[in-house]
Design a protein around this nucleic acid. Structure first.
Lengths: 148, 148
DNA sequence: ATAACAAGTGGGAAAAAGTGGGAAAAATTT
DNA sequence: AAATTTTTCCCACTTTTTCCCACTTGTTAT
Protein backbone atom coordinates (compact mmCIF):
# COMPACT_ATOMS: atom_id res chain seq x y z
CA UNK A 1 0.00 0.00 0.00
CA UNK A 2 1.26 3.46 -0.87
CA UNK A 3 1.34 5.70 2.18
CA UNK A 4 3.37 8.55 3.60
CA UNK A 5 4.71 11.91 2.57
CA UNK A 6 8.15 12.66 1.10
CA UNK A 7 9.85 15.83 -0.08
CA UNK A 8 12.22 15.32 -3.00
CA UNK A 9 14.33 17.53 -5.19
CA UNK A 10 13.66 18.10 -8.86
CA UNK A 11 17.07 18.45 -10.47
CA UNK A 12 17.83 20.61 -13.46
CA UNK A 13 17.13 17.76 -15.81
CA UNK A 14 13.62 17.40 -14.39
CA UNK A 15 14.39 14.17 -12.61
CA UNK A 16 12.77 13.20 -9.30
CA UNK A 17 13.48 10.21 -7.12
CA UNK A 18 10.48 8.14 -6.27
CA UNK A 19 10.48 7.32 -2.57
CA UNK A 20 12.27 4.02 -2.16
CA UNK A 21 9.29 2.54 -0.38
CA UNK A 22 7.09 3.11 -3.42
CA UNK A 23 9.38 1.59 -6.02
CA UNK A 24 8.52 -2.04 -5.68
CA UNK A 25 4.83 -1.33 -5.90
CA UNK A 26 5.08 1.11 -8.78
CA UNK A 27 7.30 -1.01 -10.98
CA UNK A 28 9.30 0.10 -13.98
CA UNK A 29 6.59 1.81 -16.00
CA UNK A 30 4.16 4.29 -14.57
CA UNK A 31 1.58 6.75 -15.85
CA UNK A 32 1.59 10.38 -14.81
CA UNK A 33 -1.50 12.46 -15.40
CA UNK A 34 -2.79 15.80 -14.30
CA UNK A 35 -4.84 14.96 -11.25
CA UNK A 36 -7.57 16.82 -9.49
CA UNK A 37 -6.99 19.53 -6.87
CA UNK A 38 -3.78 20.93 -8.36
CA UNK A 39 -1.68 17.83 -8.13
CA UNK A 40 -0.46 15.06 -10.40
CA UNK A 41 -1.56 11.47 -10.15
CA UNK A 42 0.84 8.61 -10.65
CA UNK A 43 -0.57 5.17 -11.35
CA UNK A 44 1.05 1.84 -11.99
CA UNK A 45 0.45 0.68 -15.56
CA UNK A 46 -1.88 -1.90 -14.17
CA UNK A 47 -3.89 0.51 -12.07
CA UNK A 48 -4.01 2.91 -14.99
CA UNK A 49 -5.54 0.25 -17.16
CA UNK A 50 -8.24 -0.24 -14.60
CA UNK A 51 -8.85 3.48 -14.27
CA UNK A 52 -8.97 4.11 -17.98
CA UNK A 53 -11.36 1.24 -18.56
CA UNK A 54 -13.66 2.67 -15.97
CA UNK A 55 -13.43 6.13 -17.38
CA UNK A 56 -14.08 5.18 -20.96
CA UNK A 57 -16.95 2.89 -20.15
CA UNK A 58 -19.88 5.14 -20.81
CA UNK A 59 -22.30 2.64 -19.36
CA UNK A 60 -20.68 2.71 -16.00
CA UNK A 61 -22.31 4.22 -13.02
CA UNK A 62 -20.21 7.29 -13.67
CA UNK A 63 -22.86 8.48 -15.99
CA UNK A 64 -21.59 11.76 -17.31
CA UNK A 65 -23.31 13.70 -19.93
CA UNK A 66 -21.65 12.60 -23.11
CA UNK A 67 -20.03 15.93 -23.75
CA UNK A 68 -18.77 16.19 -20.21
CA UNK A 69 -17.33 12.75 -20.38
CA UNK A 70 -15.54 13.54 -23.59
CA UNK A 71 -13.86 16.58 -22.20
CA UNK A 72 -13.03 14.92 -18.94
CA UNK A 73 -11.43 12.01 -20.73
CA UNK A 74 -9.56 14.40 -22.94
CA UNK A 75 -8.20 15.92 -19.78
CA UNK A 76 -7.16 12.63 -18.22
CA UNK A 77 -5.98 10.78 -21.31
CA UNK A 78 -4.75 13.55 -23.52
CA UNK A 79 -2.23 14.70 -21.00
CA UNK A 80 -1.24 11.43 -19.49
CA UNK A 81 2.37 10.44 -19.94
CA UNK A 82 3.81 6.97 -19.76
CA UNK A 83 7.10 7.29 -17.96
CA UNK A 84 9.97 4.88 -17.39
CA UNK A 85 11.61 4.60 -14.01
CA UNK A 86 15.39 4.69 -14.44
CA UNK A 87 17.84 2.23 -12.90
CA UNK A 88 18.06 4.08 -9.60
CA UNK A 89 14.39 4.86 -9.13
CA UNK A 90 13.97 8.26 -10.73
CA UNK A 91 11.44 9.50 -13.23
CA UNK A 92 11.53 12.33 -15.71
CA UNK A 93 8.71 14.82 -15.19
CA UNK A 94 7.41 16.21 -18.46
CA UNK A 95 7.72 19.98 -18.52
CA UNK A 96 4.04 20.58 -19.21
CA UNK A 97 2.99 18.60 -16.15
CA UNK A 98 5.50 20.43 -14.03
CA UNK A 99 4.04 23.70 -15.17
CA UNK A 100 0.52 22.50 -14.65
CA UNK A 101 0.94 22.43 -10.89
CA UNK A 102 3.65 25.05 -10.59
CA UNK A 103 6.57 22.83 -9.66
CA UNK A 104 10.02 24.35 -9.34
CA UNK A 105 12.86 22.77 -7.33
CA UNK A 106 11.09 20.42 -4.98
CA UNK A 107 8.05 18.19 -5.04
CA UNK A 108 6.00 16.64 -2.30
CA UNK A 109 5.27 13.02 -3.10
CA UNK A 110 2.34 11.48 -1.29
CA UNK A 111 1.13 7.91 -1.18
CA UNK A 112 -2.65 7.64 -1.25
CA UNK A 113 -3.53 3.96 -1.04
CA UNK A 114 -3.16 2.84 -4.63
CA UNK A 115 -2.00 6.00 -6.30
CA UNK A 116 0.75 8.54 -5.75
CA UNK A 117 0.20 12.26 -5.81
CA UNK A 118 2.74 14.95 -6.61
CA UNK A 119 2.32 18.42 -5.15
CA UNK A 120 4.06 21.73 -5.09
CA UNK A 121 5.07 22.26 -1.48
CA UNK A 122 3.10 25.40 -0.79
CA UNK A 123 -0.07 24.04 -2.37
CA UNK A 124 0.31 20.85 -0.38
CA UNK A 125 0.64 22.70 2.89
CA UNK A 126 -2.44 24.75 2.15
CA UNK A 127 -4.33 21.61 1.29
CA UNK A 128 -3.15 19.98 4.48
CA UNK A 129 -4.15 22.92 6.62
CA UNK A 130 -7.59 22.90 5.09
CA UNK A 131 -7.95 19.19 5.74
CA UNK A 132 -6.69 19.55 9.26
CA UNK A 133 -9.30 22.19 10.04
CA UNK A 134 -12.21 20.02 9.12
CA UNK A 135 -10.58 16.85 10.22
CA UNK A 136 -11.40 16.46 13.87
CA UNK A 137 -14.41 14.38 13.06
CA UNK A 138 -12.42 12.41 10.53
CA UNK A 139 -9.90 11.50 13.18
CA UNK A 140 -12.73 10.43 15.38
CA UNK A 141 -13.88 8.14 12.64
CA UNK A 142 -10.39 6.72 12.52
CA UNK A 143 -10.31 6.10 16.23
CA UNK A 144 -13.67 4.42 16.34
CA UNK A 145 -13.05 2.32 13.28
CA UNK A 146 -10.06 0.81 15.05
CA UNK A 147 -12.33 -0.69 17.63
CA UNK A 148 -14.85 -2.18 15.24
CA UNK B 1 -4.69 -6.93 24.78
CA UNK B 2 -2.54 -3.81 24.80
CA UNK B 3 -2.56 -2.11 28.18
CA UNK B 4 -0.23 -0.05 30.32
CA UNK B 5 1.80 3.12 30.11
CA UNK B 6 5.53 3.26 29.39
CA UNK B 7 8.03 6.08 29.09
CA UNK B 8 10.75 5.38 26.54
CA UNK B 9 13.67 7.30 25.15
CA UNK B 10 13.83 8.53 21.60
CA UNK B 11 17.50 8.29 20.67
CA UNK B 12 19.30 10.58 18.28
CA UNK B 13 18.47 8.32 15.38
CA UNK B 14 14.76 8.64 16.13
CA UNK B 15 14.47 5.11 17.43
CA UNK B 16 12.04 4.10 20.18
CA UNK B 17 11.69 0.74 21.84
CA UNK B 18 8.24 -0.69 21.80
CA UNK B 19 7.33 -1.99 25.24
CA UNK B 20 8.32 -5.64 25.29
CA UNK B 21 4.81 -6.62 26.25
CA UNK B 22 3.43 -5.12 23.07
CA UNK B 23 5.81 -6.73 20.62
CA UNK B 24 4.18 -10.06 20.09
CA UNK B 25 0.83 -8.46 19.43
CA UNK B 26 2.14 -5.75 17.14
CA UNK B 27 4.26 -7.98 14.96
CA UNK B 28 7.03 -6.93 12.60
CA UNK B 29 5.25 -4.31 10.51
CA UNK B 30 3.14 -1.55 11.94
CA UNK B 31 1.47 1.63 10.74
CA UNK B 32 1.90 4.92 12.55
CA UNK B 33 -0.47 7.80 11.94
CA UNK B 34 -1.50 11.02 13.64
CA UNK B 35 -4.49 10.33 15.79
CA UNK B 36 -6.82 12.37 17.89
CA UNK B 37 -5.77 14.85 20.58
CA UNK B 38 -2.13 15.41 19.66
CA UNK B 39 -1.03 11.81 19.78
CA UNK B 40 -0.01 9.12 17.31
CA UNK B 41 -1.83 5.88 16.71
CA UNK B 42 0.03 2.66 16.07
CA UNK B 43 -1.84 -0.10 14.29
CA UNK B 44 -0.81 -3.58 13.33
CA UNK B 45 -0.73 -4.00 9.54
CA UNK B 46 -3.75 -6.20 9.84
CA UNK B 47 -5.72 -3.75 11.90
CA UNK B 48 -4.67 -0.95 9.59
CA UNK B 49 -5.94 -2.83 6.59
CA UNK B 50 -9.23 -3.29 8.29
CA UNK B 51 -9.49 0.33 9.30
CA UNK B 52 -8.46 1.67 5.93
CA UNK B 53 -10.79 -0.62 4.05
CA UNK B 54 -13.58 0.50 6.26
CA UNK B 55 -12.89 4.18 5.85
CA UNK B 56 -11.45 4.65 2.40
CA UNK B 57 -14.51 3.46 0.59
CA UNK B 58 -12.21 1.62 -1.73
CA UNK B 59 -14.99 -0.64 -2.78
CA UNK B 60 -16.56 2.21 -4.65
CA UNK B 61 -14.66 2.27 -7.93
CA UNK B 62 -12.71 5.40 -8.77
CA UNK B 63 -13.16 6.98 -5.41
CA UNK B 64 -10.93 9.81 -6.59
CA UNK B 65 -13.76 11.30 -8.59
CA UNK B 66 -15.43 12.53 -5.44
CA UNK B 67 -13.84 15.57 -3.88
CA UNK B 68 -14.43 14.78 -0.24
CA UNK B 69 -13.35 11.20 -0.76
CA UNK B 70 -10.13 12.48 -2.26
CA UNK B 71 -9.39 14.70 0.71
CA UNK B 72 -10.24 12.02 3.15
CA UNK B 73 -7.98 9.45 1.53
CA UNK B 74 -5.22 11.98 1.25
CA UNK B 75 -5.59 12.78 4.91
CA UNK B 76 -5.80 9.18 5.90
CA UNK B 77 -2.96 7.69 3.84
CA UNK B 78 -0.75 10.67 3.19
CA UNK B 79 0.05 11.19 6.83
CA UNK B 80 0.58 7.58 7.77
CA UNK B 81 3.82 5.64 7.72
CA UNK B 82 4.50 1.95 7.40
CA UNK B 83 7.30 1.11 9.79
CA UNK B 84 9.38 -2.01 10.37
CA UNK B 85 10.17 -3.21 13.85
CA UNK B 86 13.88 -4.00 14.11
CA UNK B 87 15.38 -7.17 15.52
CA UNK B 88 15.28 -5.93 19.11
CA UNK B 89 11.84 -4.35 19.08
CA UNK B 90 12.48 -0.75 18.10
CA UNK B 91 10.83 1.40 15.47
CA UNK B 92 12.00 4.46 13.62
CA UNK B 93 9.68 7.43 14.07
CA UNK B 94 9.46 9.52 10.91
CA UNK B 95 10.47 13.10 11.58
CA UNK B 96 7.19 14.55 10.34
CA UNK B 97 5.23 12.49 12.84
CA UNK B 98 7.57 13.43 15.66
CA UNK B 99 7.02 17.06 14.84
CA UNK B 100 3.30 16.63 14.57
CA UNK B 101 2.94 15.97 18.29
CA UNK B 102 6.02 17.82 19.50
CA UNK B 103 8.18 14.86 20.51
CA UNK B 104 11.74 15.46 21.62
CA UNK B 105 13.72 12.98 23.75
CA UNK B 106 11.08 10.81 25.32
CA UNK B 107 7.72 9.40 24.40
CA UNK B 108 4.90 8.01 26.45
CA UNK B 109 3.62 4.81 24.93
CA UNK B 110 0.18 3.75 25.96
CA UNK B 111 -1.75 0.61 25.24
CA UNK B 112 -5.39 1.28 24.52
CA UNK B 113 -7.18 -2.00 24.01
CA UNK B 114 -6.24 -2.90 20.46
CA UNK B 115 -4.09 0.03 19.43
CA UNK B 116 -1.11 1.85 20.85
CA UNK B 117 -0.87 5.58 21.34
CA UNK B 118 2.27 7.69 21.47
CA UNK B 119 2.30 10.95 23.42
CA UNK B 120 4.63 13.74 24.31
CA UNK B 121 5.04 13.55 28.09
CA UNK B 122 3.68 16.98 28.96
CA UNK B 123 0.68 16.61 26.68
CA UNK B 124 0.01 13.20 28.14
CA UNK B 125 0.05 14.52 31.70
CA UNK B 126 -2.27 17.37 30.83
CA UNK B 127 -4.57 14.93 29.19
CA UNK B 128 -4.47 12.71 32.23
CA UNK B 129 -5.14 15.60 34.62
CA UNK B 130 -8.05 16.69 32.55
CA UNK B 131 -9.44 13.20 32.60
CA UNK B 132 -9.04 12.92 36.36
CA UNK B 133 -10.66 16.28 37.00
CA UNK B 134 -13.50 15.30 34.81
CA UNK B 135 -13.84 12.00 36.58
CA UNK B 136 -13.99 13.68 39.99
CA UNK B 137 -16.41 16.20 38.70
CA UNK B 138 -18.62 13.56 37.25
CA UNK B 139 -18.46 11.50 40.41
CA UNK B 140 -19.52 14.48 42.47
CA UNK B 141 -22.38 15.25 40.19
CA UNK B 142 -23.51 11.70 40.40
CA UNK B 143 -23.20 11.63 44.16
CA UNK B 144 -25.08 14.88 44.75
CA UNK B 145 -27.85 13.71 42.52
CA UNK B 146 -28.27 10.91 44.99
CA UNK B 147 -28.02 8.24 42.42
CA UNK B 148 -25.26 6.40 44.17
C1' DA C 1 24.45 -13.39 46.98
C1' DT C 2 25.67 -14.62 42.43
C1' DA C 3 24.56 -16.07 37.98
C1' DA C 4 21.54 -15.96 34.06
C1' DC C 5 18.36 -13.51 31.53
C1' DA C 6 15.55 -9.90 29.59
C1' DA C 7 14.65 -5.08 28.49
C1' DG C 8 16.06 -0.64 27.25
C1' DT C 9 19.75 2.32 25.36
C1' DG C 10 23.72 3.71 22.51
C1' DG C 11 27.09 3.63 18.77
C1' DG C 12 30.08 2.11 14.79
C1' DA C 13 30.22 0.25 10.24
C1' DA C 14 28.00 -1.20 6.13
C1' DA C 15 24.33 -0.56 2.94
C1' DA C 16 20.87 2.06 0.72
C1' DA C 17 18.71 6.33 -0.74
C1' DG C 18 18.89 10.75 -2.71
C1' DT C 19 21.37 14.07 -5.51
C1' DG C 20 24.40 15.86 -9.13
C1' DG C 21 27.06 15.80 -13.32
C1' DG C 22 29.73 14.13 -17.36
C1' DA C 23 29.83 11.70 -21.63
C1' DA C 24 27.66 8.76 -25.15
C1' DA C 25 23.65 8.33 -28.04
C1' DA C 26 19.73 10.14 -30.30
C1' DA C 27 17.16 13.65 -32.25
C1' DT C 28 16.74 18.23 -34.28
C1' DT C 29 18.26 22.13 -36.78
C1' DT C 30 20.91 24.62 -40.15
C1' DA D 1 26.49 16.33 -43.47
C1' DA D 2 27.89 19.03 -39.68
C1' DA D 3 26.56 21.34 -35.69
C1' DT D 4 23.62 22.01 -31.87
C1' DT D 5 20.50 20.50 -28.61
C1' DT D 6 18.16 17.00 -26.05
C1' DT D 7 17.87 12.60 -24.02
C1' DT D 8 19.86 8.56 -21.96
C1' DC D 9 23.11 6.01 -19.48
C1' DC D 10 26.46 5.59 -16.17
C1' DC D 11 29.39 6.92 -12.38
C1' DA D 12 30.37 9.46 -8.02
C1' DC D 13 29.48 11.99 -3.86
C1' DT D 14 26.79 12.86 0.45
C1' DT D 15 23.48 11.86 3.68
C1' DT D 16 20.38 8.76 5.77
C1' DT D 17 19.02 4.30 7.11
C1' DT D 18 19.94 -0.32 8.47
C1' DC D 19 22.30 -3.89 10.70
C1' DC D 20 24.88 -5.67 14.21
C1' DC D 21 27.18 -5.64 18.53
C1' DA D 22 27.82 -4.04 23.29
C1' DC D 23 26.82 -1.74 27.65
C1' DT D 24 23.67 -0.95 31.55
C1' DT D 25 19.97 -1.79 34.57
C1' DG D 26 16.68 -4.44 36.70
C1' DT D 27 14.44 -8.97 37.39
C1' DT D 28 14.33 -13.94 38.05
C1' DA D 29 16.37 -18.29 39.32
C1' DT D 30 19.67 -21.18 41.61
Amino acid sequence: MLIGEYIHTIDNKNRVSLPAKFRKILGKKIVVTPGLDKCLFIFTSKEWLKVSKKLSDSNSELSFLKADQRSFNRYMFGRAAEVEVDSIGRILLPEFLKEKIGLKNTAVIVGVEDRVEVWEEKTWNEQKDAMEKQAEHLAEKLASAGTI
